[in-house]
Nucleic acid binder design. Sequence first.
DNA 1: GCGTAACTACTCGGATATGCTGTGTCCGAGTTAATCTGG
DNA 2: CCAGATTAACTCGGACACAGCATATCCGAGTAGTTACGC
Lengths: 156, 156
Amino acid sequence: MSQGVEWALHTCLNLSWLDAPVPTSVLATFYELPPAYLNKQLQALARAGILTSTSGPRGGFQLARPPEAVSLLDIVTAIEGPEELFRCEQILRRGPGEHAGVDYRQSCEFSQVMRGADLAWRRELAGKTVADVRTGVERGHPEAPANTRARIAALR
Amino acid sequence: MSQGVEWALHTCLNLSWLDAPVPTSVLATFYELPPAYLNKQLQALARAGILTSTSGPRGGFQLARPPEAVSLLDIVTAIEGPEELFRCEQILRRGPGEHAGVDYRQSCEFSQVMRGADLAWRRELAGKTVADVRTGVERGHPEAPANTRARIAALR
DNA sequence: GCGTAACTACTCGGATATGCTGTGTCCGAGTTAATCTGG
DNA sequence: CCAGATTAACTCGGACACAGCATATCCGAGTAGTTACGC
C-alpha cells in the first residue's frame, strides 16, 4: 500500500482543525515531507472531492466537506484507486473445463472469498470518519488542536 | 496484490485432488502459466510448510497438510509475506507534539483503525480453507475432480 | 540369475535479467494581493 | 486622498526522471530410476 495514504490521512486530520486554505509547502514542513510529492497526493484528494484547492497567494488546500462526511475509505480510495486488493485474472479460462463465455470473477469460488474479505476490509474503513479519529485524538491529547494551529500559523 | 496468489490458490486446490507429487511443468501447463515463474511461487509455498517438494524423477509438489488445515490466509501470507496492508511509518514523530520514545504504531489512531481493518480482512481469509472451497466447487461441478485428475495424468 | 555400480534423465532451488508502478522532482499557467501612478 | 492599472509574488497542476519490486528466465545441485556389467 502506497506511502501517500499515511500522509493524506494525517493531513486531512490537520486540515479539519483549520478553516482557511493551507499551502502544500506548509503542510509538507509540518511532517518534513517532500513538498512536490505531497502536492501530488493532495491533487488526488482534490480530484476525489475531499479537498478544495485555491490558487494564488493565501491559497492552498482545505477540506471540502465536514470531517464527519469523510471516511477513511474515501481517502484510501482517492490515493490508491478503486481497484480491489485481489484482482482475478480468470486463469480458469485456460483450464480443462473452460467455458469461454463465463465470467469467473462471479463464479470462481476463490474470487468470491477474496471479494468477501475485501468488502470486510472496506466496511471497516467506511465506518470510521476523520471526525471519529479527531475525537479520539482530542480525548487523549487535548492540546493537539491548539498545537497544530499554532505550528501552522508559525509556518505561514 | 501479486499475481502469483491466484496461481497458488488454484494450484493448491488442484493438488488437493491428488495424492502423488506433481512437477511444476505439469502444473504450469494446466493453466498455461510460465513454468519457471510458477516454480518460484511454489517454492515459497514449500518454505511456508504448505507444500512438500520432492526432487528427481517422479518428484514434484504435493500438499503437506490435509486441505482442511490450509487456510486462504496461509497461502496469501506465503506469497505476499507477513507485512500488513498498511504500514505506519510513524510520521507523527516529525510532528509538533513529538515524543521520541513513543511507538506510534500503537498509539496513533489511524494506525489502530487501519490495523482493525487489516484484521477483519485476515479473519475472513483465515476462516476459509482449501477444503471449504473444494466442497463448494464439487457441489457446482461434480465432474471437476475427475477432470483434473485425468488432465494431470495425461500431462505426466 | 542376481547384486552392484555407473549413468542418465528429471526435478527442485537459487542466481540472474527485464518492465512497470510507486516515488520524487521540476517548471509553466493562473490568480491574488500589493504597489505605483495619475487625477 | 482615492481609484485604477500594473506588477510581482505565490500556489496549484501536470509533465518529466529515477528506483525498487513484481515479473520472467536460465542454469547448476541433487536425486531416483534405469541400465549395463561382473560374478
